[in-house]
């Protein structure tokens, strides 16, 4: 029986080792995810900084750089990844919260830059979108906005903000546009709207979406 106890202990040790490996691999991949979001964030902040610097130098930035759908796509990709992390149960993770705060600030910077470039032709329509985590209509609205972002990358730029996120700039933005409950709420061309709006509703609000034919999705 002495030998048998050793076997129970050995089996426990091996099982524990396999489990520790499984948990390590999983957290390693999770860390790589956070790293990827960070590097996206660096690349976006570099693009914004470059446009901003150019703007300061010439009092006018290149419209192509500002409205590049590339930057819009990068912002969208980063937002996809952040919402994946939230759906994978890491919404409370301090790392993720910081990345989200950073992301919101980058959005606001990009928004300020674009709204100040008033000499450009065909500027994209700007939508400021406010949501919160436990709001079923926000999930639906999120789908509609993702659809619009994917299908009209050149005509619209959507900035989404977590209303509950502790970033004072978001609060200021919300006060500026008199955002009130219930969410979802959004601002299109300076006007505030509340509640769920379908793709068709959005097309009425943003005439550019209705007139332009559907772009190819990458």
């Amino acid at each position: 029986m002495q030998k048998d106890w050793k076997k129970y202990a050995l089996a426990l040790a091996i099982t524990a080792a396999i489990f520790i490996t499984a948990i390590s691999i999983s957290s390693l991949i999770d860390n790589k995810r956070v790293d990827e979001i960070r590097s996206m964030q660096d690349s976006i902040s570099l693009s914004i900084l470059s446009s901003e610097t150019q703007f300061n130098l010439l009092k006018q930035a290149s419209c192509d750089d500002l409205f590049s759908s590339e930057l819009g796509k990068e912002l969208g990709d980063m937002s996809d990844r952040l919402s994946y992390m939230e759906s994978a149960g890491r919404g409370e993770d301090p790392d993720i919260i910081i990345l989200k705060q950073y992301y919101s600030l980058l959005e606001i910077k990009d928004y300020i830059l674009i709204s100040s470039a008033n000499k450009c032709k065909h500027p994209p329509t700007i939508v400021l979108y406010f949501y919160r985590a436990d709001c079923p209509d926000c999930d639906k609205q999120g789908d509609v906005l993702t659809y619009i972002r994917q299908h009209y990358p050149d005509n619209i730029r959507i900035y989404s903000f977590d209303y509950d996120l502790n970033v004072s700039a978001i609060k200021t933005l919300a006060t500026l546009y008199k955002i009130k409950e219930p969410l979802p709420a959004f601002v299109v061309s300076g006007k505030t709207y509340n509640g769920f709006h379908s793709v068709e509703d959005m097309q009425t609000l943003v005439p550019q979406l209705a007139t332009t034919s559907v772009e190819k999705v990458k």
Binding site: I25, S26, S27, D30, R81, K140, Y147, Q150, F196
Partner: peptide, 24 residues
Amino acid sequence: EALNTKIFELSHPIWNWFFFYTSP
């Protein structure tokens, strides 16, 4: 309900490793 048939036009980046399920 939100998108109706347009839901199939959403492109999902599922083949990116980032979105693979990798729980312990």
